[in-house]
């Protein structure tokens, strides 16, 4: 299931190898599916992270939404409506012969989530992807997701030119509990992205065990 890489003896970085090594269909032995939601503002790297760990080329699903135009005065009293297509990219990882994990790069804005029925329901947790150059773009995302009370971690996608902040500075700026894991992650790197997923899964398990003790 792991991608092939071409290692070179002189220490150069390996060449990227095209995805698509997993088949279109899941192994017949799979009986259960779970999901992790990768959330964050537009352009933060949700699809990049999904693509770096997915065993298939990320796929795209679209839903149409109709909304009333805001701030439009219509003297005839007719409501002006526009139709928008909202896209969500996703990938998958077959974790063992019986279990598959889906990764959904969910849109940042709350009003889009309800387009996909059951998007949030039953998720392992949320991987909140942030860009420290525009941290405020994530405030809205966090406001909304915290209301769902799903376990989440913060992954700081390191963009070239972004300054270093330590984990506590990130927690303070985002006003999230001290117990929330924060990881640094280059979303283009499968190893770092995979480690972020492991951190989230471990956190979700810890949250569940803590809940059971209450």
């Amino acid at each position: 299931m792991a991608s092939e890489t071409t290692s070179s003896p002189d220490g150069r970085p390996p060449l990227p190898v095209r995805k698509g090594r997993a088949g279109r269909y899941l192994p017949d032995t799979v009986t259960q599916s779970v999901k992790i939601l990768v959330v964050g503002p537009f352009g933060v790297g949700k699809t990049t992270l999904t693509a770096s760990v997915s065993e298939i080329e990320p796929l795209r699903t679209e839903e149409r939404m109709t909304e009333a135009s805001v701030g439009v005065d219509d003297l005839r009293g007719l409501e002006s409506k526009t139709e928008t297509t909202v896209a969500m990219d996703f990938g998958r990882i077959t974790l063992n012969p019986a279990l598959v994990l889906y990764l959904f790069g969910a849109p940042g804005q709350r009003r889009f989530w309800d387009l996909w029925q059951g998007l949030v329901v039953g998720a392992v947790g949320l991987l909140v992807l942030v860009d420290t150059r525009r941290l405020e773009d994530c405030f809205d995302v966090l406001d909304q997701w915290e209301a769902h009370r799903l376990p989440f971690i913060v992954a700081v996608n390191r963009f070239p030119g972004s300054e270093d902040f330590d984990d506590d500075e990130i927690r303070e700026a985002l006003d999230i509990p001290f117990s929330t894991p924060v990881v640094q992650c280059d979303a283009t790197d499968p190893l770092q992205s995979g480690e972020a997923l492991r951190t989230l899964a471990a956190h979700a398990l810890a949250c569940r065990e803590e809940e059971a003790l209450k």
């Binding site: 259960q32 779970v34 990882i93 063992n96 994990l101 190893l191 899964a201 398990l205």
Partner: peptide, 21 residues
């Protein structure tokens, strides 16, 4: 519909054993 503790453990084990690269 929250995943059970056993399922979360299986997800974690699966991610730990998965070769990302």
């Amino acid at each position: 519909s929250a995943p059970s503790r056993e399922l979360l453990q299986e997800v974690l084990d699966g991610l730990r054993n998965h070769e990302f690269a």
